[in-house]
């Protein structure tokens, strides 16, 4: 499993995403640039330039036609994946921390930061897919301010008009975007800030990671915690491995406290945990700073991790990964 090292960013990674087919890998970082790579050989296909601040988040639609990005220059941008052109820009009073496409590509949800007297806001935009994409509506379809702790991550659920959010307090909640009402919440899903939220393929469950050193699988309907993975380091990202019963967790000592702790304490490894048995099965070393984001190929054939060290490492799984049955012959539903 020799990794491919993608050296295209000058600062730490913030989010990486595979497209639906998994042939492309999008990465964004604090250096204002979004890169797109061929996932199979690590060749850089191109960059998306224009953001004037840390790019916090990206998402790509299922046809790999449009891409959205949210950045610290208070903009949400719509890009053409193929040409790298910025098609439309929405401006807000504060930075955009998280974006996500709806399953049918018709809508985009975004979270803006709570800052300078502005409240944290969640907005949903309609994406006009007709024409070249430059003809978008300036006004959001829905907008609301979640009450209480600010939201940090979000995603659409299969239920229409319902999104799932993770909050700074560790809360995980379901919101109706139309009314802005909180439908369901789990105040004590985590005890610290929720750092990542990734949906399963069918959207019926999701995995969250948190600075409280744990990752959890939740049912997206009831928000019931199905599984808990407790590690000994703050987690920045958690991903589900399709096809195999594993979850991938990444994190490490805060960048700011690295100098005050021993090097070997950092634990900058990607951890593989068994999804059902809640046991750690392996670790992959490589980064020399905390891992900020992990993404798994939709077919489960490779994964990529982006770190505070500014590198993306793409690992293609060996044959043995698919053949190995460390727990014997068990049929585990995906």
């Amino acid at each position: 499993m020799r990794p491919i090292l993608l050296q295209g960013h000058e600062r730490s990674l913030t989010q990486i995403k595979f497209n639906t087919e998994g042939d492309l890998l999008l990465s964004c970082s604090k250096d204002h640039v979004i890169n797109v790579w061929y996932s199979h050989n690590g060749e850089r296909l191109g960059t998306y330039e224009g953001n004037n601040g840390t790019v916090w988040t990206v998402d790509v639609d299922s046809e790999s036609r449009f891409m959205v990005s949210g950045a610290a220059d208070n903009t949400l941008r719509l890009w053409a994946v193929e040409t790298g052109k910025c098609l439309y820009t929405w401006e807000f009073p504060t930075a955009v921390k998280r974006v996500a496409f709806k399953e049918d590509d018709s809508q985009v949800v975004c979270i803006t930061e709570q800052r300078m007297g502005h409240q944290c806001a969640i907005r949903v935009f309609n994406i006009n897919r007709d024409g070249d994409g430059t003809n978008q509506s300036q006004e959001p379809l829905y907008m609301f301010n979640p009450i209480g702790s600010k939201a940090t991550v979000c995603a659409f659920t299969p239920t229409p008009n319902v999104i799932i959010t993770g909050h700074e307090s560790g809360k995980v909640a379901l919101f109706n975007v139309k009314s802005g009402d909180e439908i369901e919440n789990n105040e004590r899903a985590h005890s610290d800030i929720v750092t990542d939220l990734q949906m399963s393929k069918d959207g019926t469950y999701c995995i969250t990671s948190s600075k409280d050193k744990a990752a959890r699988i939740h049912d997206t309907k009831s928000l019931m915690v199905i599984k808990t993975f407790t590690t000994e380091t703050p987690l920045n990202s958690a991903a589900l491995a399709p096809g195999r019963p594993y979850v991938l967790l990444g994190g490490g000592q805060e960048a700011m406290s690295v100098t005050t702790t021993s090097l070997r304490q950092g634990k900058f490894e990607t951890r593989f945990w068994h999804k059902v048995f809640e046991e750690e099965v392996g670790r992959v070393k490589g980064h020399f700073g905390p891992i900020n984001t992990i993404a798994v190929h939709p077919a489960g054939t490779c994964y990529a991790s982006g770190g505070e060290d500014g590198f993306v490492r793409v690992h293609h799984f060996d044959d043995s990964y698919f053949r190995a049955k460390p727990y014997g012959d068990l049929e585990i539903a995906d």
Binding site: K275, V276, F277, G328, L330, E331, I332, A333
Partner: peptide, 11 residues
């Protein structure tokens, strides 16, 4: 483990 897997699969 079998019990865990069964629970998971049922869910």
């Amino acid at each position: 483990r079998k019990r865990l897997v069964d629970e998971w699969n049922a869910w």
